[in-house]
Every structure is written in C-alpha cells, then in structure tokens.
Amino acid sequence: MAMQSEVQIDGLAKPTARSRWKQVMYGLKRDKYLYLLIAPGLLFFLLFKYVPMWGIVIAFQNYSPYMGITESPWVGFEHFIRFFSNQDFYLLFRNTMAISLLKLLFFFPLPILLSLLLNELRSAVYKKWIQSIVYMPHFLSWVIIAGITFLLLSQSSGIVNKMLVSLGYAKYDFLTNENNFWIMLVIQNIWKETGWGTIIFLAAIAGVDPQLYEAAKMDGANRLRQAWHITLPAIRSVIVILFILRLGDIMDVGFEQVFLMMNGAVSNVADVFETYVYRVGIQQGQFSFSTAVGLFKSVVGLILVILANKVAKRFGEEGVY
C-alpha cells in the first residue's frame, strides 16, 4: 500500500502477487542508495528500541526478576483491572487530563507566538540577545525552579506575599491552595520552556524564501499579513507534527515538576498517573503494575495520535506517518 503511488507508473492496472513482487524489487534496486542512507537509523530502532520491547509483556505477568520473564506467572489483565477499579482512578484521570490540556491550550501556542514576534524584530543584534536569553531557563532543573517558586510565593517569607501585605491585603496560600495549583504549574512551564520551544520554529522560519516576503511587500501586504500568509504556513507542518506528538503523551504531565510542587494540602488536584505509579508501583517494587499503567498511557496516546494524524491528512498535511 505504501508503495503504490509512485510505482503504479509502471502501468499495471491490477498487480498480481508476482508482478507486485517485481515492483518491490525494482524499487529496492532503484533506491538502493536511499536504503543505504536509512539503514543505520533503521538498525538503531530495531536494535535499541524493538529488542527491549519484550519488557512490555510483564504488564500481563506477576513479574519477578529472580524468576525472569519465562518463569514468572501470567495473570492476564489483572493489573489493568486493579488499576481501573481503583476508586481514585477518576481523580487521577481528571488531574492528568486537566494539567495536560491546560498546558496544551496555554503553553503550546506560546513558542509559536514568540518566534513570530522574534522574527518581526528589525534589529538583528537585539533579536540575537533576546533569543539567547529566553531559551536559558530550559537549563534550570525543576528542583531549582521549585526553590525559586518557594522564595516568591511562600507565606512565611515569600516576596509576593510581602508585597500583598504591604499593600494591605491578606497573605495568600499560593503553594497550598487547590484552586491555583494547576495554573501555577502551567506558568512555571511557560517560563521554563517557551524560549526553548522557539528554536525549532525559528529553524523552520529560516527556511522561508526571502523572495516571498519581497513579493508580498510589492503587493502591499503589511507585516501581519506577511506573517499570516507566509511565515505561519512555512512552519505549519512543524506545528502540526509537534501537536500530534504532544497528544501522544497527553497522559504525561511531567513527573518531576508535579512531584516537587505537590504536598498534602493540594494532592487532590495534584495527584496524576505519574505520581501514582511512582508511589504504588515503583516505590513498592511492582514492576508489572507500573508497566501495565505505562502501557495504558501509551495506548491512549497511540489512539489520539492515530486520530489526529487522520485529521491532519485530511487537511493535506504530511502528518507523523
């Protein structure tokens, strides 16, 4: 199926099995150098990604490392049933989806916007400086960012609360309040990753043919129209691909960040699949259970990616496969 489009030129209306085989061989021979180019990458994926995949089957076992995968007893969907029948499943699902969707909604567009703004800067020097500054927070670990957040927002000595008090307001419990926990996570994420996220878009924008802008200027298109009609379409496929891939890990919200910001007072809104797996699976040495939850998350991701990819293809995009 994948090979139809080009090969049909050979003029066979209804390919028999035999002639199909011939076509395949012809294609292989014709593109042998192309196959040579992809060989190392393909080999890598088969060796380092697919050989260890057997690890997934332990989701259906009561895996004991000592007995190994061959001796460990099979339990079918027991771990999945246990996971789904957990009375907190809904809560975990809600929190995970809420944080993920909020990040998708508010964080995802920002790097695009920022790179468009950067692209509009006339001064190359200024642009260089801003670019080099905004991508730096990516390099700070969540531990450091959690520390800085504490300095800003704590009740005992946080700067923001000090300001509130001096303005005559009461202190606010930012860090232990369920109402603003999700927003806080999103803001942290925006601060840390927006600049880093522009890199890929700036690279895509750099590929735009300058003549297009010239032509647009001749036609009297203003900057907004140029951005809309030239720049944005140039990075559209990157945006679409990133978006689809993000949907793939919609069940992951970033363990470290949540784990560090979570505390007893907010755990009703903070507990997500990742923190749950850490607590119930990893810390307890429950390999099979952890794997089962991971598998569930992956399957959900896969379904979303397939759906999103279908939609993207319908709109004439290349998509992710």
């Binding site: 994948a2 489009s5 080009e6 014709r30 593109d31 992809i38 995949m53 690890g55 997934i56 991971g294």
Partner: peptide, 22 residues
C-alpha cells in the same frame, strides 16, 4: 515519497515514541 515501506517505517518509529520498555 518514492521510498517503498516508508509509511510502515514511520509507524514503526512512532510506536517507539509512545511505548517504552522500562
């Protein structure tokens, strides 16, 4: 686009993004 099996390989790659073996 002329490369045979490219869509299959893309899918193969996609799956490694989503599924990890621990």
């Amino acid at each position: 686009k002329r490369l045979q099996g490219r869509r299959f390989m893309m899918l193969l790659i996609l799956i490694t993004i989503l599924f990890g073996p621990g």
